[in-house]
């Protein structure tokens, strides 16, 4: 690759930023997967070792991070489908921007109840509201 680019491939706007986010979420999810395979591998050590590491997933901070991970995976999956539609659907390139807004809408619509169900136990444990 050249060192001093003349002109640039980076064109800004929705197309570029959706790709930047696809790249960042892909990297983040990939490295989490390394960690996750290793923590699951503790089932081969002992039930106690596994339960101990899983206990960290149940703490408020890791629970919140997990919501972030789910959000990253969900964006990557939805935008991945959009990229596939752009590549294979004859009208895909023309509607790429509209499709981005659609997937962002789906993302918000899924993340609101998703966050609620993922966090409900943590919120109750922290603020102890028993109705």
């Amino acid at each position: 690759m050249a060192t001093a680019p003349v002109g640039t491939l980076y064109r800004g706007r929705e197309g570029m930023w959706s790709w930047v986010a696809q790249r960042i979420t892909g990297i983040a999810v990939f490295f989490f997967l390394y960690v996750h395979v290793v923590d699951t591998a503790l089932v081969r050590v002992s039930p106690e070792a596994y339960d101990l590491v899983i206990a960290t997933y149940k703490t408020p901070i890791v629970n919140l991070l997990e919501v972030g991970l789910v959000g990253a995976v969900l964006y990557h999956a939805l935008n991945g489908l959009r990229v596939i539609a752009v590549d294979f659907w004859s009208k895909g390139p023309r509607y790429q921007r509209q499709m981005l807004w659609v997937i962002l809408g789906v993302w918000v619509a899924v993340m609101i109840p998703g966050t609620y169900y993922m966090m409900i136990h943590t919120v109750e444990a922290l603020f102890g509201s028993t109705p």
Binding site: P47, Y50, D51, K58, N63, E66, L74, M118
Partner: peptide
């Protein structure tokens, strides 16, 4: 992946119910 995340994090009790058993 989305099925896995849903089953593990949302369905009956989410991550709180996960252990060796």
């Amino acid at each position: 992946v989305l099925g896995h995340l849903f089953i593990m994090n949302v369905l009956d009790g989410g991550v709180q119910r996960i252990n060796f058993a």
